[in-house]
């Protein structure tokens, strides 16, 4: 006889603003499981929750910051990384992560992304790549695969997309990984490693966007789009990053893994600790 299991609490409740739920994401969207991997990773990291700050840009992924019961900043489009820099330099005790979308981080915010990696700013960036601008209704962006259909590439995308792990590794990131929103354990572990890694860490998460991207490319529902990514996925931590670019082809693999984990001098400018007390009592 089946026992009814009533769950009135979620393990991540502590980290969620339950009064803001339900979220705005579409059925079949991968963002819910990415957010859950992020909160699991944060709890597993041992970082005191009150010291962790989440910064996001604008877009579907940008909304994650608002659902987390953390100090969280939902900034302007593309600007999460310099915002995080200001927080980290002025208040070095904070542990800062940016979670935002591929368009936000690599298009309008692309300059900030490469420079933060170059500096080796102590920051974790979780980049949810859904291959399009979802919030505005499915337009092409710098990660849209060659040939893919979107509302602004009705005859197929004629541009070559970014290969994000290759890009950020080339400009200096010390930790680089890629998973899909289906690889929840690997993704959680990868985000945890990234959060604990001093310097610039980057985790790309491929995530289904059935409404913005899947439909236009006949990928079916969220679950079908997920299967499309899963059956092509291979894990290769030692992959040559030049070769991990993404295509729409059934025959070409989606290479996942924890690609880079190395040491470089971490960006060091920071404000001395007693500065904040001064500002608050006018003794600055």
């Amino acid at each position: 006889m089946a026992t009814e299991i009533v769950v009135d609490r979620h393990p991540a409740d502590l980290l969620l603003r339950s009064d803001r739920l339900p979220h705005i994401w579409c059925p079949g969207c991968g963002l819910g499981s990415v957010m859950s991997c992020y909160t699991d990773a944060l709890m597993a990291s041992g970082i005191p929750v009150e010291r962790h700050v989440c910064v996001s840009g604008i877009g579907c992924t940008g909304r994650v910051a608002g659902y987390l019961s953390l100090d969280s900043f939902h900034t302007t489009h593309g600007r999460a990384i310099p915002y995080a820099l200001g927080l980290k330099v002025s208040n070095p005790d904070l542990k800062v992560a940016v979670i935002s979308g591929d368009g936000d981080l690599s298009s309008i915010g692309g300059n900030h992304l490469i420079h933060a990696a170059r500096r080796n700013l102590d920051l974790t960036v979780i980049c949810v790549n859904n291959f399009n601008y979802g919030m505005t209704g499915g337009q092409a962006g710098p990660t849209t695969p060659y040939g893919a259909t979107t509302s602004t590439t009705p005859d197929g995308n004629v541009e070559q997309p970014f290969n994000l792990p290759h890009l950020v590794a080339a400009v200096g990131a010390v930790y680089v990984a890629r998973w899909t929103s289906l690889h929840v354990r690997q993704l959680r572990d990868s985000i945890r490693t990234a959060l604990l890694k001093p310097g610039f860490s980057f985790v790309e998460v491929l995530s289904p966007c059935p409404v913005g991207f899947g439909k236009a490319n006949d990928l079916g529902d969220g679950i079908d789009e997920m299967r499309f990514y899963r059956r092509r996925s291979i894990v290769d931590d030692n992959a040559n990053l030049e070769d991990v670019g993404l295509t729409m082809s059934e025959d070409e693999p989606i290479v996942l893994g924890n690609f880079v984990n190395r040491e470089r001098t971490v960006f060091s400018p920071s404000v001395k600790k007693w500065a904040i007390e001064e500002v608050l009592n006018g003794q600055a």
Binding site: V55, F73, T75, T76, G78, R79, I81, P82, Y83, A84, L85, G86, L87, K88, V89, S90, N91, L94, N111, H112, H115, P269, S270, V271, K272, W274, A275, I276, V279, L280, A284
Partner: peptide, 26 residues
């Protein structure tokens, strides 16, 4: 005891200043 950061552009400059202000400094 302060910090100077030369940003990649003025978009970054002003946003880093806003972040720093929220971090608790002038």
């Amino acid at each position: 005891g302060g910090a100077y950061v030369q940003m990649e552009d003025e978009l970054g400059s002003i946003v880093s200043v806003i972040g720093a202000a929220w971090g608790g400094v002038r």
